[in-house]
Nucleic acid binder design. Structure first.
Lengths: 253, 253
DNA sequence: GGCCTGTATTTATCATGAGGAATGTAGCCG
DNA sequence: CGGCTACATTCCTCATGATAAATACAGGCC
């Protein structure tokens, strides 16, 4: 009973995957930064003693993860490419495709994270950033007249939150808030598209965002946080009134 | 559907990427679930009118994202494969590789998310789950005697949090807490490995976890949340005393 | 001289076919 | 019946060549 059997725990790693891993190690060992050039196809073939097809599959793996980019032509080749925020969001969205997330799940998270973000930004924003935020709020100065308009306003409102996230110095906070905005923007469908009494909630939402910017400008962390919390509760009620659902679908990457 | 115009905004999509996207659409249109079989290599070649190499590169792209798995042999082929929690965490970790996250960034998030998780689990856990948690706390019954032991205890403590995350019915909360536990487990190095006065902090941390389980069992949401908040503050101080740093490195996928 | 344009060169991209490796199945043999 | 073996199926890896894209550069035109 010798045990030369391939370990069942390891489901066998294909050669392209092995090569991809070696390239990752190669990059990490040298602490290469974004834009650094990797060996070209021919060199990779010689370096790893594999065929062109295998190298190319390895490149596609790394590319899919956002770790490299490739260009043709003179001076072309493969380069270390910082994973973009957009791509990271897409990759994670793929995971939640299988998790049937509910709107209240998203809001349970938003209700704690967004106020924290607001509090941490109070008094930290430049006049230009404050101005940018006020501009975004003004994108929807009047109550929506149609379901489409209402949806547009919702998306505009989410842009406000995504922008706020951008301003944070905490990458984790930035990512999470921005990711939730994306989920709600791209993955949400509405069952009841228009509910008359939403006008009231809409007005409160707008008021909240304006007040929030004021509090941020004045550096009032506690107040900013409180406004945001209230804003989140209102937004959740609005979506629940519309019977919003998170839709199952893959995200384009 | 096709857009032959060489739009300058779009940096050109390679054929493997296009094929990968088409396969995604194919899956989504049919609402295929985990385990569903995709057309085999030969059929893909015929279906998309591309070469074998191109199809294979497309498969590696989808595989890298965790969307499919492939097996050789009779009955083999490609199958829809639910993105695993582990893979999702790895892919996101790649993003933060480039963001130089600090320990306090992680704790800013933990301080709001973990208490929320605790509150939402109060009174919701089965006796078996409570028992499992108590078991995890008992994995480190005595103060650490060496730096290595101290690190082990830290990791065991993070397992406690990851397990708690598992019990949540909110996939977003589960992911976030579990992801942060992973970051702290895998990506943290300690500058000062042993500080004598940590014993006190250690004792408080252990006490916290025991009390927390009691509160969860008793269904006291407010108390659970408060304990967790305090626990997070202690943990952060502990890490700051050790001058912990988040390390830059790619995660194996 | 400055600018356009065609052309050469570099590099990745796409295609084809042959053989190898893994794996499940059916049939054979004891 | 139980275990072994041969085979069929499917992806995997390799090798090689043609094609297409991007850039650099030289030459011609104003």
């Amino acid at each position: 009973m010798s045990d030369p059997a391939p370990s069942p725990a390891r489901p066998r790693r294909s050669r392209p995957v092995q090569v991809a891993d070696q390239i990752k190690d190669w990059v990490v060992e040298r602490d290469l930064k974004q834009g650094a050039k990797l060996p070209n196809e021919a060199e990779m073939i010689a370096l790893f003693r594999v065929s062109k097809g295998t190298v190319r599959e390895a490149m596609r793996i790394l590319e899919a993860q956002g770790l490299i980019v490739t260009r043709t032509g003179p001076g072309g080749g493969s380069f270390v490419g910082e994973v973009s925020l957009e791509r990271a969001k897409s990759l994670l969205a793929n995971y939640f495709y299988f998790q049937d997330l509910s709107v209240s799940d998203v809001y349970q998270m938003r209700k704690v994270v967004e106020p924290e973000l607001a509090a941490s930004l109070a008094g930290k924003l430049s006049p230009a950033q404050i101005k940018e935020l006020r501009l975004l709020v003004q994108e929807y100065p009047a109550p929506a007249q149609s379901p489409e308009e209402e949806r547009d306003q919702h998306i505009a409102s989410l842009r406000f939150h995504a922008k706020l996230a951008e301003y944070s110095a905490n990458p984790l906070l930035t990512f999470m808030v921005s990711f939730m905005a994306r989920i709600l923007t791209d993955l949400t469908v509405y069952r009841r598209l228009y509910e008359p009494h939403n006008v009231e909630l809409w007005a409160r939402g707008r008021r909240h965002q304006l007040d929030l910017v004021d509090a941020l400008e004045a550096g009032e962390a506690e107040r900013a946080s409180a406004i945001m919390r209230s804003h989140m509760e209102g937004a959740e009620r609005l979506m629940q009134a519309q019977e919003a659902r998170v839709m199952r679908r893959f995200m384009a990457v």
